[in-house]
Simulated assay, not measured.
Amino acid sequence: MRRRRASLGVMREPRPAPERIKGRGAGSNREGRFELTSLEHVDDGWFREDGEAPPQPRTEVSEETARSVISRNRSPDIPFEQSVNPYRGCEHGCVYCFARPTHSYLGLSPGLDFETRIRAKTNAVERLRAELAAPGYRCSPITLGINTDGWQPTERRLRLTRGLLQLLHDTRHPVSIVTKSALIERDLDLLAPMAAQNLVQVALSITTLDNRTAASLEPRATAPHARLRTVRRLGEAGVPVSVIVAPVIPAVTDHELEAILEQARQAGAHSAGYVLLRLPHEVAPLFREWLDLHHPERAAHVMSLVRQMRGGRDYDATFGRRMRGEGAFADLLEQRFRIARRRLGFGRLPELDCGRFVPPRPPSPQGELFQGDRSLP
């Protein structure tokens, strides 16, 4: 191991050269933009047999105690004001995930660390209950599954998202959901009655219909055909469903735009949207590594198209342009989407009802004195 710069930064695992790693999206543990120390592997030949593959990175889930869980949004091009994320990091491993740079704030890599070192906010339900019960709280829809997918694999065991959804169900609080996991079908017992009161809508994100492409882009997310099945099952249960073609990657997945919309409509999706590939901060070099590993023959062409839509840069974060891009290729994508949406008869999801909300009762020591006392009238 060789240290390139000495500092007091947080120590992490050394970064080997980028490589294909089965079941992982990132090909390296690239340093975050706040790191002061950078480490790299140097193979000295010890403890490795000739031809022996390096050990696969394992997922580690650690507990985090949150001081608050509701995040407020003021971005004019995002259609929600509040969101809740019970996890930091996401085992789905989508290499394009715009949330990867948030791991840099933890002193961890937006690369492999983001998908292998997960933080679980184990007090999320408790904190949400307290925030909903606050006297000044104003009800507006809460979105689950923005920075990380609330139904990622570790949710099967921890059930944090399930607890949050149960609380929102009990308080009749409206919620919108974004996911790419069939695990959401587990919660149909909550979603269906909420849908009957116009309290929930779900968006399934579908990037590609090709299993091989999905296996490298988003290796631990639900397979594309299973997501379409989830669209159908949610719709059959009365849950309003939309499909988001996201992200649209030029010269990799953009040719599938119409096919995804057609199959989503056949599965029962009520509305549709799309988002252009976004490469903020450390996502850009991670995505370039992915191209070099999986599509070296077209890597330069893909990035050339990306820059044409981003004002000559890897990314343009300007509101109004960051989701759609600019230029001839971006205009063509938007035109194709509009034509397909009109032809397939997509509509809009109904607005959620905020008038049913009943704040949770704050804990009362006095109330607990009488809990269970059946002798009282």
Score class of each variant (00 low, 15 high):
M1C: 12
R3D: 14
R4P: 00
R4Q: 11
G9N: 09
M11N: 12
M11Y: 14
P14S: 07
A17P: 04
I21C: 12
K22C: 11
G23M: 13
A26C: 13
N29V: 11
R30V: 13
G32H: 11
E35L: 05
L36G: 15
T37W: 09
T37H: 09
W46A: 15
F47S: 08
F47Y: 14
R48L: 08
E49T: 08
D50L: 14
P57E: 08
P57S: 09
P57A: 11
R58M: 14
T59C: 15
E64L: 15
E64Y: 14
T65A: 13
S71D: 14
N73P: 01
N73M: 07
R74W: 06
V84R: 02
P86T: 11
V95G: 05
V95W: 10
H103W: 15
S109C: 02
P110H: 07
E115Q: 12
A133Y: 09
I142W: 03
I142V: 10
G145N: 03
W151G: 11
P153G: 08
E155H: 11
R156M: 13
L158Y: 10
R159N: 08
L164Q: 03
L164K: 01
L165R: 00
R172V: 00
P174G: 02
K180R: 14
R186H: 07
D187N: 04
P193R: 01
P193A: 02
V202A: 12
A203T: 15
T207E: 12
T208G: 06
D210G: 03
N211S: 15
E218P: 02
A221V: 11
T222M: 11
A223Q: 15
T230K: 12
R232S: 14
R233V: 11
G235W: 09
V241E: 03
V241H: 02
S242I: 05
S242F: 12
V243W: 01
P247H: 07
I249A: 01
V252L: 11
V252E: 07
T253A: 05
D254W: 01
D254T: 06
E256D: 01
E256Y: 04
L257G: 00
E258Q: 06
I260M: 02
A269V: 00
H270L: 15
H270S: 15
L279R: 05
H281E: 15
F287A: 07
H295N: 04
E297H: 10
E297L: 08
R298C: 08
A299S: 12
A300Y: 10
H301I: 03
Q308W: 02
G312Q: 05
D314W: 01
M323N: 13
Q335P: 02
A340N: 01
G345T: 03
F346P: 00
C354K: 03
F357P: 01
P360I: 03
P363M: 05
P363L: 07
Q371P: 06
P377D: 09
P377M: 02
